[in-house]
């Protein structure tokens, strides 16, 4: 029957029913209906709304990817897999993929580690905890315009504060936008800054649920705080960690705002003079909304989707394994 997948939940309602006052047939019919169909009613709104307003447009986009498609004029003829062939032969695509990968490792990886650390700090007994929590999430809520102005002043080549500091301690000024490594480091910094607090709050919510007896027992055994954190706290919030890894991977694969606002040429820019920090999403934007080449952009979107699925899957498996290690 329909309920074979989860035996322990499925068997439960029938057995105890006998112990209770007898039901009218009408009531029991309602109850059976309730048991069988209510779950579907619960998930129905999601699938209806999501289907109409997200899946349909995206399938349409998939259809577009098999055509020459100008954004305004629409269909210019079927090309089959032509766009996909072009994309895989496109050096800019591989370049953007490399950059996205680097940012995923440095930025997304960094943001999760920073978030874990922040959550551990916030999980202590603190006075004014609401204030600290509001504080860490602020970078995420402040308008991107303000953020871009501030970071332009921090990472500026000739007038930037970071370079002033470097010079002060005897290093050369760095033209942050000019090279891949410096640009990736800078953009990763912005990503970590914007997202660490966001994920820290999610981790924190989970850490608050970790039974304290576990920690106390370990402390009595003389374990160090660091060891307690890694061998008790982290495994206890494993599902949340896995969730955050998958979610941040999906977000990280679509990184757009941070490298975009790091580009001195703004939306006119290509992510650096040699596309040294152009991400997949930036390239998609360039193709779709600057060159009006919807067919190509749609192709890129679908390839991105597949990549995201693969990378998220790998990260899911990895994070499950790592987080469960004691």
């Amino acid at each position: 029957m329909s309920v074979t997948e989860l035996p322990r939940a499925a068997e439960a309602p029938e057995a105890p029913a006998a112990r209770r006052r007898p039901r009218s047939p009408w009531r029991s019919r309602i109850s059976r209906f309730d048991l069988r169909y209510t779950p579907y009613l619960f998930i129905l709104p999601f699938f209806v709304i999501f289907g109409v307003f997200a899946v349909y447009p995206l399938l349409y986009t998939g259809w577009i990817s098999f055509h020459e498609w100008a954004i305004i004029e629409g269909d210019q003829g079927w090309t089959g897999l032509g766009n996909y062939q072009d994309l895989f032969a496109d050096a800019y695509f591989w370049n953007a993929l490399l950059n996205t990968g680097l940012l995923l490792v440095l930025g997304t990886g960094g943001e999760l580690l920073a978030a874990l650390w922040l959550a551990a700090v916030l999980n202590r007994k603190l006075s004014g905890s609401a204030f600290w929590r509001a504080g860490v999430v602020l970078p995420h809520v402040i308008s991107v315009v303000a953020v871009s102005l501030v970071f332009a002043q921090l990472f500026g080549y000739q007038t930037g504060i970071f370079n002033d500091v470097l010079e002060l301690v005897g290093f050369d000024r760095i033209n942050w936008q000019a090279n891949r490594w410096s640009a990736i480091i800078a953009v990763s910094t912005i990503i970590i800054w914007r997202w660490a607090g966001y994920f820290a709050l999610i981790f924190l919510a989970a850490m608050q649920g970790v039974p304290h007896e576990l920690n106390e027992a370990a402390m009595l055994d003389g374990a160090s705080k660091r060891r307690i954190f890694w061998s008790i706290t982290v495994p206890s919030i494993r599902p949340t960690i896995v969730f955050c890894v998958v979610m941040s991977t999906i977000i990280g694969m679509q990184t757009f705002a941070e490298p975009q606002l790091f580009d001195v040429q703004g939306t006119e820019g290509t992510g650096g003079s040699d596309r040294q920090f152009q991400t997949l999403m930036m390239y998609l934007y360039e193709k779709g909304f600057r060159e009006f080449n919807a067919g190509y952009a749609a192709t890129l979107a679908w390839v991105m989707f597949l990549l995201i699925a693969v990378v998220s899957g790998i990260n899911y498996a990895l994070s499950r394994r790592i987080a469960s290690k004691d």
């Binding site: 102005l149 332009a152 080549y157 000739q158 007038t159 930037g160 001195v264 040429q265």
Partner: peptide, 8 residues
């Protein structure tokens, strides 16, 4: 080398 339209 001050980028066009930038705060710099």
């Amino acid at each position: 080398g001050y980028p066009p339209f930038s705060p710099e």
